[in-house]
Amino acid sequence: MTTPEARLVCRNVWKLFGADAAAFLAQHNGRPEAAAIARAGLVGAVRRVDLDVHEGEIFVIMGLSGSGKSTLVRLMSRLIEPSGGDVLFKGENLLKLSQSRMIEIRRHQMGMVFQHFALLPHLTVLDNVAFPLDIQGMNRPAREARAREMIDLVGLNGKESAFPRQLSGGQQQRVGIARSLAVEPEIWFLDEPFSALDPLIRREMQDEFMRLQTKLHKTIVFITHDFDEAIRLADRIAIMKDGEIVQAGTPEEIVLTPATSYVAEFTKNVARAKVIRTRSLMVPADSGSVEGPVVSARSTIADAAPLFLDGVAHLGVTDDAGELIGRLDRETVVALMLQG
């Protein structure tokens, strides 16, 4: 596997709320202890975060309420100035950019979806979706055409002239998604996009989101406090606690080898089969060497298992391009399922 290109990199990023946070950080050589922060009366919302988000992946940041997720994602888009550290976007240090360059980047390369939708109440669905384009100065016919395309994409046709307050929560968030995609962002931030929705709608929106991603292949930073949502959607997960990232890795790594007891607490009740992907259990095989049904290397074991019901002894495993790369044996799957 080649290492994919890092789109967004955080290096030793800190955010302390309170007076003179930057000076305090400098005093402590940029790495104060939690106790020192508390003594100084500051809030350590984000502490020594190092992470990189790769091109085309869904990077999920998971943590309980108050763990600093929103703050971190706002640091990544420089909506908040960090107290210390660097944020690199495509190799450019965001923190060193002028305001006009920052506006330029936000206008054309970043999109964000908000927990409470953040729709402008005085604009119709169409105008809300076209709003970022309008801000860029695009003329009306062009931006409306583009907005209609996006509304189609999220399945809201017919609602163009409705106002936000006339829509359900799920529909409102679809508008939010359409709006954030209208500018064709290169990086897409979603801050708990589905947390304000009912469980059923949430499930539906997650599916919708996955459908969009298979189409669009965006680089995504997705925030959630729901561990199930995280393992469902993530290529990689970073788990936050009290402003720190306690573990980062693929869902499988996290479930199989939790770094701390805190992480283990989350993974305890997760069915292994729902996390582990066929790629991790397969035996490498050359193309053409396996007959019968095939599954994608990205599918989870739980998704693949029903195919064994027909009585086959093994499945072919294919990569994204459809090439056969391995073989999944019935016994391995049964053994895993029996572990729970």
Partner: peptide, 17 residues
Amino acid sequence: PSEIIDLGNMVGCTDRQ
């Protein structure tokens, strides 16, 4: 709501916008 302000910044509003 602060989210609306964040939205304004994220779509690249100038101060006047």
